[in-house]
Design a protein around this nucleic acid. Structure first.
Length: 632
RNA sequence: GGGGCGGUAGUUAAGUUGGUUAUAACGCCGGCCUGUCACGCCGGAGGCCGCGGGUUCAAGUCCCGUCCGCCCCGCCA
């Protein structure tokens, strides 16, 4: 067996990204993986890779150690023999001398001025031929990349992403610590609490038949830190939610969790803004003060966001806003369009009311520049239908303000003029309509807006495209109507503080109650959310009454928190930042999976380890569990 | 739970109205080559066309089912 000189007697002197022209003449020891081997017949060039970079090393049988003023002639033949054997991804070590490449330099890499002339080499390990090449611009099924994630992670772009995450973590720790926050830990295995996201459950062997829940967030525990008087807390923490996935959702994900005592909403914002400025500066070298000179992010109310963009996480990198024309439809009694008239009638006769969320008519004006073909429109209509819409009514604005290419051509001049005036639509523009249930109309138009934004090149398919648009979305409603029961449910959670001037109407007019809940949005992604908590037991009881939760139920569900809040809870509030989403946006990658070292597929599987897996009967018996047969 | 797209050598793709032995590039293996750096040149191996059923003289291709992956709606307080 080889003598292992390279590990036992010699130490690595440099990384594969270190050496420059100034190092010429140095004797060096490099360790790494074989990126590429170019055998010219006698002379073998090898690109040696480690996490810092690539260095070309040369195995040349004609090397004369004396010319390099070093020993080692007897080892050169051995080294050249090794060069003949090695293959991509083998792990080797070399000892050699840095020489200038003179005219033959490679300007494409930082180490391109030099190469290392090998005097001695050792193979640490061979490698099977990898299922895909370890290259920067890999084009391979993602499933295969996940199956061999350790090879995928060997690639430079992936290494850069996780270096970025390291920087994010270091920056957050330093900043939040400087802001007086203590890094404290909360349990992952917690008591199951109903409502909200589904929990992953962990069966207990000691208490067979009982289960822990994996924490969907440290929410309740961080509030207990405030009761305990820690004053300010943060944690970089994993959260677990057993819900369906999207490109920005994984079953386990990381958030930077923050909670502060004796603060109002503005105090929380200032802290988080400072953090984001710092993160963007440290990781991307971008000074957000150029865009936000006051050091603050803009704010928009929830209601305005829904009106203008159809969701609570608007992508502000481009326009194409929506316009609510429900009032125009009512005023014009349908304006000659049968299905508008139908809606107008229902408002007339009181079936629908404007002051409570119900049905609406919205329009999005698309510039003539979009040059949408019939095929494009059909595709968009299909998209709308796949989201549950009946169709996609549209009208093209003609030279004299008439509507063409549309089922809406019966619209009156007055209605058309009113709509053109409000939307600013000009000749050649296309009007896209949605009407009916507000939630559906909003969803459809919000998605079409993003679709068109990408299609028209206002925003890239993924990545920030040089624009970082932050926004606080504030003052959402505290309660939502529960369609099934006809009662009220908490729009976020029951421990959010209502606006002070709405406390009086918590029970009398829940629909109008707004609360101190806020989301931080970046380029159309919700990257953080939080609230000022409700620490007043009197208001808390009123909220529970509105939600139809009596004291007994409240005790049963949230007893430990309510009890804690009765023992001297300071006013407090906080924030949770979706750290993976921030990493995804800053690294301009396509999905959350790209910024998580070992992510799950859309169905929650890990192709590498084959998790989740079945248990054998013995294990189940120990937990006193039995698995029901699959229902068909 | 619903809708859409995809699955063909190790990888990425092509594959005609169903019709001989399923192509190509990269990778892999062997040979040659002393200044390559996407090295080059010559040769070679490599296929359960995701899986199961059906239609047919004949299926990668058409039909049904199913599994897996991705995107969206619902869901995610």
């Amino acid at each position: 067996m080889a003598q292992r000189k390279f590990i036992d007697d010699w130490k690595r002197t440099h990384s594969c990204g270190d050496l420059r022209g100034a190092d010429v003449g140095k004797q060096v020891v490099l360790f790494g993986w074989v990126q590429a081997r170019r055998n010219l017949g006698g002379c073998v060039f090898v690109d040696l890779r480690d996490r810092e970079g690539l260095t070309q090393v040369v195995f040349d049988p004609s090397t004369e150690p004396r010319d390099l003023s070093v020993d080692g002639s007897e080892t050169i033949a051995q080294a050249v023999a090794i060069a003949e054997q090695i293959r991509p991804e083998w792990v080797i070590g070399i000892r050699g001398v840095v020489v200038s490449r003179g005219e033959n330099l490679n300007r494409n890499r930082p180490t391109g001025e030099i190469e290392v002339r090998v005097l001695e080499a050792e193979i640490f390990n061979q490698a099977e031929t990898p299922p895909f090449e370890i290259v920067d611009d890999l084009d391979t099924r993602e499933e295969l990349r996940l199956q061999y994630r350790y090879l995928d992670l060997r690639r430079r772009p992936m290494q850069q992403i996780f270096r970025l995450r390291h920087q994010m973590n270091q920056t957050a720790r330093r900043y939040l610590s400087d802001q007086g926050c203590l890094e404290l830990e909360t349990p992952f295995m917690v008591k199951y609490t109903p409502g909200g996201a589904r929990n992953f459950l962990v069966p207990s062997r000691h208490a067979a038949g009982k289960f822990y829940a994996l924490a969907e967030s440290p929410q309740l525990f961080k509030q207990l830190f405030m009761v305990a008087g820690f004053d300010r807390y943060f944690q970089i923490v994993k959260c677990f939610r057993d819900e369906d996935f999207r490109l920005d959702r994984q079953p386990e994900f990381t958030q930077v969790d923050i909670e502060l005592s004796f603060v109002n909403q503005d105090d929380v914002f200032a802290l988080v803004e400072g953090l984001m400025f710092e993160i963007v500066q440290q990781t991307r070298g971008i000074d957000l003060r150029e865009k936000y000179p006051e050091g603050r992010f803009p704010r928009m109310t929830f209601e305005e966001s829904m009106q203008r963009f159809g969701n609570d996480k608007p992508d502000l990198r481009f326009g194409m806003e929506h316009t609510d024309i429900t009032d125009l439809i009512i005023a014009h009694q349908g304006g000659g369009v049968p299905f508008f008239a139908e809606i107008a009638n229902r408002f007339e006769n009181g079936t629908l009311r404007r002051d409570i969320p119900g049905e609406i008519v919205k329009v999005m004006s698309v510039s003539a520049e979009a040059k949408l073909s019939r095929k494009d429109l059909d595709e968009m209509e299909k998209m709308a239908q796949s989201m549950g819409a009946k169709g996609l009514a549209r009208a093209k604005v003609g030279a004299n303000g008439e509507w063409t290419q549309t089922a809406l051509k019966t619209a009156t001049v007055e209605l058309r003029q009113a709509i053109h005036e409000r939307t600013g639509a000009k000749e050649g523009d296309l009007l896209l309509f949605q009407f009916g249930k507000a939630a559906l109309a909003h969803t459809v138009l919000a998605n079409l807006r993003l679709h068109l934004g990408k299609k028209m090149g206002h925003i890239p398919a993924f990545g920030h495209g040089g624009k970082l648009e932050f926004l606080w979305v504030v003052n959402p409603p505290m309660f939502e109507a529960d369609e099934q029961t006809g009662g009220w449910v908490a729009a976020h959670h029951a421990f959010t503080r209502p606006h002070d001037d709405h406390i009086a109407i918590v029970e009398s007019d829940p629909a109008k109650v707004l609360c101190y809940r806020y989301d931080l949005v970046l380029n159309g992604f919700e990257v953080g959310g939080g609230s000022i908590r409700l620490h007043d037991p009197v208001v808390q009881r009123a909220v529970f009454r509105t939600l139809g939760i009596d004291e007994e139920q409240a005790e049963e569900k949230f007893g430990f928190l309510l009890k804690a809040l009765r023992h001297g809870a300071p006013p407090h509030g906080g924030m949770a930042i979706g750290w993976d989403r921030v990493a995804m946006l800053l690294s301009e990658t396509e999905s959350l999976r790209d910024v998580i070292p070992f992510p799950k597929t859309q169905r929650g599987a890990d192709p590498m380890t084959d998790a989740p897996s079945a248990l054998d009967d013995e294990q189940l018996a120990e937990l006193r569990l039995c698995v029901m047969p699959q229902k068909n």
